[in-house]
Design a protein around this nucleic acid. Structure first.
Lengths: 290, 290
DNA sequence: TTAATCGATAACAAAGTCTGATCAAATGAA
DNA sequence: TTCATTTGATCAGACTTTGTTATCGATTAA
């Protein structure tokens, strides 16, 4: 009985969350046989079956479910106690962060720097993705925190605002010299998921400009390069093009839209891991205003 | 960080309770170097000092004290969750039980049998001692539960009644044939700590008998042998002499005293170990009535 | 000073744990 | 069906952790 360690319980929790041994193994940075062994050890120690084979998956038995339920808050409390004792400087582990592309450019550099300074033992795994998929991954436990643009209200997700940045209508230097919107530029945007796309449409709806066409690219960096090369005009977050504006590669071609783009950090509403909660707390302290 | 197991916490808790590594080692059925190693591991993992050398002892630092305080309920929670999952049949460990001699004879056999049947993994270490010393050991953590005679009300101790047994005035067969109290028998009792002694004095105070002398022996079994051999009369718990009365070795020489002897089980009021609490619960279910 | 107690340390033994390479069963697609 | 994929089990071996015994130096009390 005494031979059950904390990581055995942590293993149970992650299997319960992710559904398969393999996913838990990946999540815990180990191998599937190790997970199998841990589960076997717990079952042997307790003399009960915690999982039952169901097709090619393992599912929790009633007792297993109860055990997991009881252990979850205890595990969180334990982690918190240890981290509190070491003042969080001793925090270790891997936290997976999803981020939208725009949020990544605007929020991540400062954030990562802060975390690496204050919590040197924590490894971050950052993956850029679309907002919808990120929320799904967040709920499914594949990522622990997400940075994203635009207000998100999803059940089971807890968010905090990080600030807002201005948007600017820009076009390439050459294009502007050639007359800008006087000559029916093509407008570029990113696919309809993004709040940027909404702003693009709003401006167009005002009838100020008549685009030659509306093209999209799902990668903002590439889009910026297209614009820089004279491909047309686009609404972009000011921080992402600030240096290009300063160097003259890009120039503003319309008044700045009133709407700004909001950034948020998101975690599961049920998140209990103190490291993730601490990272979320720190994210909430970011102020990404332009 | 993840390399800290439940027994590390248990180790901290017992060091905090008992004051020294050695005592904790003994209590946890291991050696002092093992305890030192566990402490070192925790301190290394957390990167903080939990103990500070003070003379030849180690005392908790402020952080250490806080950690212990936070971990105590967590540890109890883990133990309880695990034991609940295995239905307590999987309980393991050692529980130290102190018992008064009379309580031992009256309560322990049935109790031990029940525990060995239902919680086969639990080892009992039973030590017979005086009530006062037992309470001290209980509070000091050297024992976990005590069975004792007579009502006890001590701060920090939680008790439950187990029932009462009758007392009988007995003397040896030969003595009774020779006339019993008609001939001024010596009276034997146990030292003044015991409730038996009180009953002895009460009877004498009623003036019914006039003893030739009042001697004492701090061991009831020996006292019974003395009485059996014709050494005099004594007040004894009925169950302890039942078979000797039946066989005729002893005989009752006075009406039974009205006062009975109460038995109680006692644990620390702050006890959190689920195994001990379970054993206490079972003790409370005993009914030792004659 | 002597004896006893406290915890640290080293050397060795024992037990536990992880990994990488399979294996068998179940599932889903062609 | 057949084939490819996914899931977990198993095993051998290397490696790590953990415990024990015996000893040490430091501190305290007699």
């Amino acid at each position: 009985m005494k031979r059950i360690a904390i990581y055995h319980l942590e293993t149970l929790l992650w299997i319960a969350r992710l559904g398969t041994f393999r996913a838990a193994a990946e999540r815990l940075n180990t191998t599937q046989p190790a997970i199998s062994a841990r589960v076997r050890e717990i079952e042997e120690q307790l003399g009960i079956a915690i999982f039952r084979r169901e097709g090619r998956n393992m599912v929790l038995t009633a007792r297993g479910r109860r055990l997991v339920k009881e252990c979850e808050p205890l595990w969180a409390g334990f982690e918190k106690a240890l981290l509190t004792a070491s003042g969080f400087e001793g925090a270790t582990g891997t936290v997976r962060i999803g981020s939208g592309e725009i949020a990544a450019a605007s929020c991540l550099p400062a954030y990562v720097q802060e975390v690496e300074r204050d919590l040197p033992g924590v490894t971050l795994e950052i993956e850029l993705d679309l907002t919808a998929r990120m929320l799904q991954q967040l709920l499914g436990g594949m990522i622990d925190m997400a940075f994203l643009a635009g207000p998100v209200a999803s059940p089971g997700i807890r968010t905090v605002g990080l600030g807002a940045v201005s948007l600017v209508w820009v076009a390439g230097q050459e294009t502007v010299r050639a007359g800008g919107f006087a000559q029916n530029l093509p407008v570029w945007s990113i696919p309809s998921h993004s709040p940027l796309h909404g702003v693009t449409l709003e401006t167009l709806a005002q009838g100020v400009i008549t685009p030659r066409s509306i093209s999209t690219c799902n990668n903002v960096r590439t889009l910026i390069e297209i614009i820089s090369g004279g491909g047309g005009a686009a609404v972009l977050p000011e921080p992402m093009v600030r240096s290009l504006l300063a160097s003259g590669t890009l120039a503003e071609v319309l008044p700045r839209p009133v709407r700004k783009i909001q950034f948020e950090a998101a975690i599961r509403g049920t998140e209990s891991d103190p490291v993730v909660l601490e990272l979320f707390r720190r994210a909430a302290g970011l102020r990404i205003d332009s």
